[in-house]
């Protein structure tokens, strides 16, 4: 096997640059293997976050040749033999060191989503869900929180100022999983629009493209939430029907002021 050439970004919050490494390659390697070989042979202080090496923990997210990917799931034989490969940290989050970024933004956003609040139990003391209802939300539970969707989303990737008012695709998946849950009683429609900034999403589908779990984030989470918001806020027929049926006809507040407008 020919040696592999890899440019790895090295640095910290104050700055950094790509550093060239050339290491021996073995059959069946993934990018994370090469990074580990660089650590073992050239740069023992190279910082990289990883855990399962099986595409299930979501730790080893990075940008490989500029594309957000899991290093453990990117096989070396997908590159041309003499291709130079670049590995850099996730651009959307602040760098801690080398390939490790501070993703606490995501955990702060997670805290702002109210927990599951189930309906009262039925007379026999149980709560029932039916298969046809489970299938829709089950897709969302595949999320491994690798935050590649958050990284690629241009709303926060290119507009840092939007971070306080936009939560990103990962949390729209979370909101959709709860909003469409047949047993959940919390209303998350206004929350998605006013606090999590769903209206900023212009559905360019980059989040769906990079999802390693193949969750149809845009089609199955974001757009159905947008349609529920339309019913609540923008659709005059839905508003009139709610009034006729004696339900709350509140249209909710207007769209929040976008920081970058």
């Amino acid at each position: 096997m020919p040696d592999v050439r890899m440019k790895v970004w090295r640095g910290d919050a104050t700055g950094g640059a790509f550093v060239d490494f050339t290491v021996p390659a073995d059959e069946g390697m993934v990018v994370l293997d090469v990074v580990h070989r660089i650590q073992a042979t050239h740069a023992p202080d190279l910082a990289v976050r990883w855990n399962c090496k099986a595409g299930k923990c979501g730790s080893c997210s990075a940008e490989i040749n500029g594309h957000p990917k899991l290093m453990c799931m990117t096989r070396m034989n997908t590159f041309a033999p003499d291709e130079e490969i670049t590995v850099s940290p996730l651009k959307t989050f602040p760098v801690v060191k080398d390939l490790v970024t501070d993703v606490s933004f995501n955990y702060e956003k997670a805290k702002t989503i109210p927990a599951f609040k189930p309906k009262p139990k039925e007379a026999d003391g149980t709560r029932r869900m039916y298969q046809e209802d489970i299938e829709r939300v089950q897709e969302f539970h595949k999320c491994i929180e690798c935050f590649l969707c958050q990284d690629v989303c241009h709303v926060i990737r290119d507009h840092e100022e939007n971070k306080p008012s936009f939560s990103g695709p990962r949390y729209f998946v979370r909101l959709a999983a709860l909003e469409m849950h047949p047993l959940d009683t919390n209303d998350r429609i206004d929350l998605a629009r006013l606090k999590h900034g769903l209206g900023y999403c212009n559905i360019t589908k980059c989040c769906t493209d990079v999802c390693p779990e193949d969750i149809h984030i845009t089609d199955n989470a974001i757009i159905p939430l947008k349609e529920r918001i339309v019913t609540r806020t923008y659709d005059p027929i839905a508003w009139a029907l709610r009034r006729m049926r004696g339900k709350s006809a509140d249209l909710g507040a207007g769209e929040p002021e976008p920081p970058s407008a």
Binding site: E63, V155, C201, E255, P258, A261
Partner: peptide, 14 residues
Amino acid sequence: CTVPDARAKYSGET
């Protein structure tokens, strides 16, 4: 995807 927006300001569909 991952190519920077052409505009400095962005308000999506709001």
